[in-house]
């Protein structure tokens, strides 16, 4: 049986790890390598790095720190931010990343998903989706583009479930669902959206946004809504130690790698 994965998310801006609330007001939380090392030692199953300014600023992710992380880590990590072409992805993977995650550039040009899958295999291609918690007049959730920079963030014109089905057909290998309203406020994962996405795709699904207590992780796994749970604030602050969290989940009968 596959272990449920716990994934600390490190938002990177200007070469350091930052964290915001609902994707805004970022403050520095620490050094990339120090935090990576700490999480690997605590028993994190994977790390995700979001270069949160690369995509909105129209530049590619910096590969210098990726190589330094790859030299240190013996667990997998995924890099997101600013990957627009197969050549961009090749640089990030060559620097040592295991997977690449694409968000806004896939919304702008969905054909990119198929190009990446053909070159690197679906298993390497993660699609990040930023979604607003409120549904529109027709009861559908809207996918938001360029969430990394509030002044540029906009409705992508796509509804969540339609986009989920499309990216699966185009060859994506995993979905990270970021609930914008839930992000950084620690009120639990966005269960309604996760359950709807879970029902719409068989792709591995990573829940993101809203984790504030060990029970939140247990809930999202026990409901079968996600294969992995991503969090930032509660791990960065030291409030939840990943090793302790895994022992708690195992005691509740949830399969984790200990």
């Amino acid at each position: 049986m596959l272990a449920h994965r716990l994934i600390p998310c490190l938002d990177v801006a200007g070469g350091v790890v930052v964290k915001g609330v609902r994707f805004r007001d970022h403050r520095v939380v620490g050094d990339i390598l120090e935090l990576s090392r700490r999480y690997a030692e605590e028993g994190a199953d994977e790390l995700v790095f979001y270069d949160i300014t690369a995509s909105p600023e129209g530049r590619r992710v910096d590969t210098g720190w990726i190589a330094r992380v790859a030299a240190e880590l013996d667990i997998p990590f995924c890099v997101a931010g600013g990957i627009r072409t197969v050549a961009d992805a090749e640089q990030v993977l060559a620097a040592g990343a295991d997977k690449i995650s694409v968000n806004s550039p896939a919304l702008a040009r969905p054909g990119l998903i198929g190009e990446l899958a053909a070159r690197f295999g679906s298993q390497c291609v993660v699609i990040g989706i930023d979604v607003d918690a409120a549904s529109d007049d027709h009861g559908s959730w809207r996918v938001i583009a360029d969430s990394g920079r509030p002044d540029r963030a906009s409705d992508s014109g796509r509804d969540l479930l339609g986009w989920v089905r499309e990216i699966g057909e185009r060859g994506a290998g995993e979905i990270v669902l970021n609930a914008i309203r839930a992000d950084g406020v620690r009120g639990g994962y966005a269960h309604a959206q996760l359950a709807a996405v879970r029902a719409a795709t068989r792709l591995p699904l990573v829940a993101s946004g809203g984790a504030g207590a060990p029970e939140h992780f247990a809930e999202v796994f026990e409901r079968g809504e996600a294969d992995a749970a991503l969090a930032a604030s509660v791990f960065h602050s030291g409030e939840i130690h990943i090793g302790d969290l895994k022992r708690y989940l195992a005691a509740r009968g949830i399969e984790v790698r200990l």
């Binding site: 049986m1 596959l2 272990a3 994965r5 199953d45 994977e46 679906s122 298993q123 290998g173 995993e174 068989r202 792709l203 591995p204 294969d227 992995a228 790698r257």
Partner: peptide
Amino acid sequence: PAEPRWPHMGWNR
């Protein structure tokens, strides 16, 4: 196979 998920991604024994 497509079930339980495809692709197989993560830690397994």
